Simulated scan of single mutants.
Amino acid sequence: MTQEKQNTTHFGYQQVPVDEKVKRVAGVFDSVASKYDLMNDLMSMGVHRLWKKFTIELSGVRKGHQVLDIAGGTGDLTMQFSRLVGEEGQVILADINASMLKVGRDRLLDRGYGGNIRFVQANAECLPFPDNHFDVVTIAFGLRNVTDKDKALRDMTRILKPGGRLLVLEFSKPTNPLMTKAYDLYSFTALPLMGKLFAGDSDSYRYLAESIRMHPDQDTLKGMMEAAGLSEVEYHNMTSGVVALHRGIKL
């Protein structure tokens, strides 16, 4: 492998220097932060709420738990976890992007949340938390934007308590050929158009579609989680594999 190849990574379908990807991803989310919730509802026709509900159910979070919501964005999962852990527990909403973190913090505080929630700007590849600390770690629709996914998965495993669970909710590979064709057509025509009409930004939504295609498929991600030190790794396909929820346990 050449030195040039080692120092580049993909940003959507483009090859860019590793250092540049973080800046470009930040630019995407700076652009979409204010319209993120609206666009989620439009793009998924509201189905993202069902995907997240299933994630909550499989997390096993209960009173007193310590929970980390990585790439927590506008706080959909954090909000639900806050209710479940109660006053005895704590939820940390972490995001690498300051704009997204501010939108999430403002949204949660405006709705009366915050007593058991902390907000931390953090990079998933080098999380500023101690070993064996969290009962549950989640990352929803964020792993595909991470440059070194293997490193991030190892660090997420590091901060889990023995018996703790990592849940990765992410776009994946459709299991039905007809769905694949329909999904490709939708992703590369409808998504950029909606981004232009409702968020004034077609390029960021084109990148989001490309980043989904570059993300590892279900079985590859399962293997990556096992290599990171997780056991009993399983995944659940939703919407014909358009989205998959992976769960692994730290022994």
Rank of each mutant, 00 (worst) to 15 (best):
K161S: 12
T189V: 13
L160C: 09
F198R: 05
A152I: 02
I249F: 04
V168H: 03
H236M: 11
E234P: 02
G200M: 02
V243T: 08
V168T: 09
L167W: 01
D150P: 02
K173R: 15
H215S: 12
L153T: 10
V168C: 07
L221N: 01
M156D: 02
F141H: 09
E232I: 03
A209I: 01
A209H: 01
L178W: 12
Y205P: 03
G223V: 04
A228E: 01
E232N: 12
P192T: 08
T189L: 05
I249C: 12
E234Y: 03
D150W: 01
A244S: 15
T175R: 10
D203F: 02
S187C: 07
L245A: 12
V168E: 00
V243N: 03
K181P: 00
L167M: 10
E226T: 09
T239S: 15
A199W: 00
K161T: 09
K222Q: 15
M194K: 01
Y235W: 15
Y186N: 12
A190L: 13
K196M: 10
D219H: 08
L251S: 15
M225L: 14
G195F: 00
V146Q: 09
L221K: 01
L197F: 04
L160T: 04
L251M: 14
A190M: 14
D184I: 05
V233L: 12
T239V: 12
Y207D: 03
N145D: 15
R158H: 08
A152D: 04
N145H: 11
A190N: 05
G142V: 05
F171V: 11
A182H: 03
K161H: 06
G200A: 08
S231Y: 08
S202H: 06
T220F: 06
E170F: 06
R158P: 03
R154F: 07
L153Q: 08
G195R: 01
M225W: 00
A228F: 01
L153D: 08
M194V: 05
Y186Q: 05
E226V: 13
D155Y: 07
K149Q: 15
T138R: 06
E234A: 15
A152F: 01
L169W: 00
V243G: 09
L208T: 04
T220I: 15
L178C: 10
R206H: 11
L169P: 05
E170K: 05
A140P: 11
R154Q: 15
P192S: 11
M179A: 14
L221I: 07
L221F: 06
L185W: 07
T220P: 06
Y183R: 05
M238N: 04
I212N: 06
V146D: 05
A209E: 03
T220Y: 07
R144H: 10
L208E: 00
A199F: 00
M225Q: 01
A227P: 00
E232R: 14
T138L: 09
G229Y: 02
K151G: 14
K222C: 13
K181G: 10
Y183E: 06
M238E: 06
T220A: 15
K222S: 13
L191N: 03
K181Y: 09
